[in-house]
Simulated scan of single mutants.
Amino acid sequence: MDTEPRWLTPVEERAWRGMMRMHDLVVSEAGRVMQSEFGLSGADYPVLAELTRAPGARLRILELTRVLGWEKSRVSHQLARMVKRGLLARDECAEDGRGAYVMVTPAGRAAIEAAAPRHAEDVRRLLLDHLTPGQVTMLAEISETIIGKIGDTPR
């Protein structure tokens, strides 16, 4: 039995396209600033941010992959580049011998500590300052709902 596709309504399409365009603009501009002022790529910053939030500033690579929501190959390539640049180090997992940890080096910590104040300023300048407090709360709730639903779905 063929079913008719559930096409987006004009408002739904506007919401989808607007969210995608907003994401691209904010991420692109924030990444440009991180690269030009701190030598960090748009992908370096979230890796360093997640690792510095973790106990001991280290995570198993599979856990970092899950937290970032990236494909395993993307994480692997990104980590290799960051290790090569001295921002991260890898350590084998003694508990099971299969996994590995990735940790922030002193150079990585210095890089994120230098970049974090500008990053926070950019998040405000590019996104939060254009919203009311209620809209910020609503955006947080919408984001958490979608992330929770997609995170619960088997892939």
Rank of each mutant, 00 (worst) to 15 (best):
M1C: 06
T3Y: 08
T9N: 05
P10R: 05
R14K: 10
M20G: 01
R21L: 10
D24T: 12
L25D: 12
V27R: 10
E29H: 09
G31I: 12
G31Q: 05
V33R: 02
M34H: 02
Q35D: 04
S36W: 04
F38C: 02
F38R: 01
G39N: 02
L40C: 02
D44F: 06
D44N: 04
Y45L: 14
P46G: 06
V47L: 14
V47W: 04
V47M: 11
L48D: 01
L48M: 09
A49I: 03
A49Q: 06
A49F: 11
R53F: 03
P55G: 02
P55R: 09
A57V: 06
L59Q: 09
L59H: 05
R60V: 10
R60S: 11
I61A: 11
I61H: 03
E63K: 12
E63G: 04
V67R: 08
W70F: 13
E71G: 12
S73F: 07
S73M: 04
R74T: 08
S76Q: 02
S76A: 13
H77A: 13
H77T: 12
Q78T: 15
Q78W: 01
M82A: 05
M82S: 06
V83P: 04
K84S: 11
G86N: 03
L87Y: 14
L88S: 03
R90Q: 08
D91L: 15
E95H: 14
E95D: 15
M103H: 10
M103F: 13
T105E: 06
A107R: 13
R109P: 02
E113C: 01
A115Y: 04
A115H: 02
V123H: 07
R124H: 15
R125I: 02
L126Q: 03
D129P: 06
L131C: 11
L131W: 15
T132D: 07
T132V: 08
P133E: 12
P133T: 14
M138W: 09
M138D: 10
M138A: 15
M138V: 12
E141N: 05
I142L: 15
E144T: 11
T145M: 10
I146R: 09
I147E: 12
G148W: 09
I150G: 00
D152M: 10
D152Y: 11
P154N: 04
P154H: 06
P154T: 09
R155T: 13
